[in-house]
Amino acid sequence: MNLNKSFKIIVMIFLMIGILTSSAYAHRMLLDEPQNGEVQVGFDDGTVAPGAEVIMYDQDGEVIVEGAADEDGIFSYDTTIEPYRVVSTDDTGHRAEWTADVEQGFMEEAPMWMRFIFGFAIITFLAAITMFWKAKQAANN
């Protein structure tokens, strides 16, 4: 089996960095809850998304307002508007959505390290299944 030490070392390093760095998220666009005529568009590394395109919809899915966020990633709208669904996009394929009265999924609430370990468990499991399948195939031939 060519499972080798150096790979293990590399993976361990990544694992350590991944668990120790609290901001170790990838680029995911985030859209905060619209409040007082303003909505913040940013990324989960803490940076903002200046110039992101924001579109607000009402409950029937009709566009109420659309425009671009300012240099702080904030999009301002008329306080008389009550957006039901907000969608933001930028030029490089990021997109975020916010909908009133939708709760966060279980996965978003689970702690970071738990999701990491879960991910590794699945990879191990997949590897085991593939090995089993390949071994069976070899035995049949």
Binding site: N2, F14, G119, F120, A127, K134
Partner: peptide
């Protein structure tokens, strides 16, 4: 090859999350 692929896959899974 499977262990190697799995380990690289795990490294990619984490590596892509590092900022």
């Amino acid at each position: 090859d499977i262990p190697q692929v799995a380990i690289v896959s795990a490294a990619l899974f984490v590596g892509n999350l590092i900022h």
